[in-house]
Write a protein that binds this DNA or RNA. Sequence first.
DNA 1: CCTTTCGCTGTAATCGATTGCACTAAAATA
DNA 2: TATTTTAGTGCAATCGATTACAGCGAAAGG
Lengths: 348, 348
Amino acid sequence: MKENGKVTIYDISKKLNISAATVSRALNNNPKISSKTRELVFAAAKEMNYKQNRLAQALKSGKSKNVGIIVPYINRNFFSSIIRGIEEELGPHGYHVIICQTHEQMETEVEQINTLLNTQVDGIFMSISKSTNNIDHFKKVLEEGKSLIFFDRKLDVPGVSSVVIDDFKAGYMATEHLISQGCKRIAHFAGDLNLEIYKNRYGGYIKALEDNGMKPNPDHVFTTLSSVESGSAAAAKMWELKEKPDAVFSASDYTALGAIQELKKLGVNIPEDFCISGFSNEPFTKYMEMPITSVDQTPLRMGKIAAQVFLEQVDSTQKLTIEKKVVLSPELMVRNSSDRSLRKLAVK
Amino acid sequence: MKENGKVTIYDISKKLNISAATVSRALNNNPKISSKTRELVFAAAKEMNYKQNRLAQALKSGKSKNVGIIVPYINRNFFSSIIRGIEEELGPHGYHVIICQTHEQMETEVEQINTLLNTQVDGIFMSISKSTNNIDHFKKVLEEGKSLIFFDRKLDVPGVSSVVIDDFKAGYMATEHLISQGCKRIAHFAGDLNLEIYKNRYGGYIKALEDNGMKPNPDHVFTTLSSVESGSAAAAKMWELKEKPDAVFSASDYTALGAIQELKKLGVNIPEDFCISGFSNEPFTKYMEMPITSVDQTPLRMGKIAAQVFLEQVDSTQKLTIEKKVVLSPELMVRNSSDRSLRKLAVK
DNA sequence: CCTTTCGCTGTAATCGATTGCACTAAAATA
DNA sequence: TATTTTAGTGCAATCGATTACAGCGAAAGG
């Protein structure tokens, strides 16, 4: 009782002179147990401060009620918001979330998956690392009968569900918005085009131009890393062009910020002479003196929906692999960096 | 072998016609096993794709190799960075981190602690919620022989280690910096003074004033919530004073930002007429057009050190409760919102 | 040649909870 | 009264890995 905080059903059974099986059944509200016994057991359990050992239960049942989440880095607003969404949706169902980071290394990713499987998680949520180019480790998860769910960054693996935003549409929306502001020569700061998400943003950008009768200009597309420095460098290069763009759709908020800083130095008026849209709706975008237009990926919602997909899968009795692909609609947050209507109103 | 991805040491023992005990010993490199057998076992394990079941091992050993982390919200840069630090330090030692959120509710906090204990975590890291006013649930953790470590927001509980920054010193440093910039009437935007951290920041502020021969003025202290709105409201009120302050040390970056926005509206020149320092070094502070001076709490380091304290405790064979209190030094990030030296140089 | 020692392996219990099956008494039915 | 239900419990195996203890064969010592 006072030993080490370790009270088991055996301790209860001894005290009550009944079998451990009866105690277990009583605690689980098994209808075969008389209400009298049940009450005795509950009273004793409370008095002795009994706590169920979830490890033992997990071992017996084969369900640990733990899920793993693997992301490149935890402390990125986008990822931590998704994690929050998953936790909030799964917590009430008795699940705990175990967090892992890959640091963008596929090697680490493989390792993390292995140890999560060893730990007997009931499922794995993840966003693949930039360097991931092989899907064997994902297949292993499925072979063990666990569900695997990709969010945001994914690869096509049969049997794996995914929750992503429509990056193509996002690119399209952002570009079209810039067009609606009267911009005629729209540039693009692209990310790593090997990643599906960046490819799609780029694709949406191109399509929006074409649909509006504008000819995409390869000189207006700059490959960048997701950093402020990379953004200002690209902006500087962009401004050396003979035919200068009058807007940029950036696949990252950081490059958008870098561009703004650089263009201000160059004396460009935003949004009068140049409009900018970023991507991700990072917290800082709305706090700037010149708030930055950006695409919100609704990470909290993404996390919650990924969790719901998982719950559907574990609840379903059918063993056959269900594969669900959810594509969420992004939301364009129009702000000063691209909103000319505010200025026009002010002029009136 | 192909059943359900479930290969156990028994499967290996059958295939090799040896006992499971031998397999277990071989896998654990027990010196009593002949190297010949060991090699056979390793070969078979690899071939059959054996994976150790950490649940079973945890149940037997009483060590789950899991730790819990409880924070108000995961998706706050400060907390997610601490979590990252803990994960990076503990991961290589074979630990997994389980994340929980309290949403600032003590009731949830108690619940989370209970389920973490049920899950047999080896230790718990946490930052208490704002509403926590009772320490019974913390005592329970110690009674079960698990180590408990507070980071940042703590309460004094015997036997509980903690890793915090020196908020008093931080308040002192920030205030003294403002004084060094020539400010004479320094205000303070305080947080909830029931929390130790805010009380200490306030204390450091007062002491710095006194040490510099300035008389603290109660009218210059405003209680705020950690939000932009609260900051601008406080700034507006502040500007109604007859004796207007010429600087503010804000206990939150968000209120600092709100103040900057409000003061700009009022036509105040920063930092020429008014200096501002925030607190937490939120990512946005350095991205602003007017980057905000702020106190960096070095959350990554805080997480890593908390993890080290934990490791020391589990490694120590002595059962006696070790209690370690680590106080880290904050770092003041001086930026434009309070740095007049830049302007003076420019004038020259 | 017999006994002791050492090296290696097997047996069985254990961690804590769950559950199919068997069993006992009381209640219902014939 | 004899027999069948039924309600309520207990027994024992199980999940997978670990480990104290026992045991066995071979080499070493007497």
